[in-house]
């Protein structure tokens, strides 16, 4: 039994520890005795979605993102049918924006892949900080770090989670990310999966179901450090005094 994880263009999209998400997907399969293989696809290499069970699309700088969009144009149809067929995708930050209809910066409009029902507009104020979500995919709150200039509008789509602390998709909508079929698009770095193992298991279970059929519920793991790392952030932002100190600290001139 084996799953194949495709890491798309790690040479272009490698900001903010995306390796952590790859490592998490791989190890959590291996810890349960399931084989896992990671296939990195560098830009310019051909890829066949039929071989892949999980796809990870990370974030990059705007310049690199444009290079990626050009590359992805060639595999757009394959990628689209992979998603429609229930293929599992985790798209973080830049990857999330690319999968939408378009990304409008101050100067131009970069067309996206049109796979997710969302679009992004750039605004000068970057949304930066720790973020905590309440997501239907996880009992524990989802913790991460967001850092984006784009505001993503998801219309009627189902968000990844409700924002308990932080900014989320647009700062004002109160929601973060987007779920579409078995795709999760999100702004959460941190990296997302290691501290939110339930999300990782959710993705793996969907991938196993798609490949081997039936209903999968993975064996629970003793995630002691994972829970501590997660709870430590949740507790911190439940403390009003701390939140206040952090806010004030941001505006001090020295």
């Amino acid at each position: 039994m084996k799953l194949t994880i495709g890491h798309l263009y790690p040479d272009l999209l490698n900001l903010y520890g995306d390796q952590g998400n790859i490592k998490c997907l791989m190890r959590r399969l291996q810890w349960r005795g399931i084989e896992a293989e990671v296939k990195p696809f560098l830009s310019g290499e051909s890829l066949d979605f039929a071989d892949l069970d999980v796809v990870l699309l990370g974030g990059g700088s705007d310049r690199e993102q444009e290079l990626v969009c050009r590359q992805l144009g060639e595999i757009r149809r394959d990628f689209g049918s992979y998603v429609e067929d229930g293929g599992v995708v985790l798209a973080v930050c830049g990857g999330y924006q690319i999968l939408g209809d378009y990304y409008r910066t101050a100067e131009k409009e970069i067309p996206g892949l049109g796979i997710l029902p969302a679009y992004t507009k750039w605004e000068p104020r970057r949304l930066v900080g720790n973020i905590i979500l309440d997501s239907p995919l996880s009992l524990a709150p989802v913790v991460g770090f967001e850092n984006h200039g784009g505001r993503t509008y998801i219309g009627e789509g189902a968000p990844f989670g409700r924002v308990l602390f932080g900014y989320g998709n647009t700062r004002t909508s109160g929601y973060e990310g987007l779920r579409y079929k078995n795709v999760i698009g999100t702004y959460l770095h941190g990296p997302l999966l290691p501290k939110n193992p339930e999300i990782c298991d959710y993705l793996l279970e969907r991938a196993l179901e798609r490949k081997f059929g039936g209903v999968w519920k993975l064996r629970r793991l003793p995630d002691r450090l994972e829970r501590q790392a997660n709870a430590c952030m949740v507790e911190r932002y439940c403390d009003r005094g701390y939140v206040w100190r952090e806010r004030v600290g941001r505006y001090l001139p020295f």
Partner: peptide
Amino acid sequence: RDISWLWD
């Protein structure tokens, strides 16, 4: 504030 870099 972001410690994602530990994974790099």
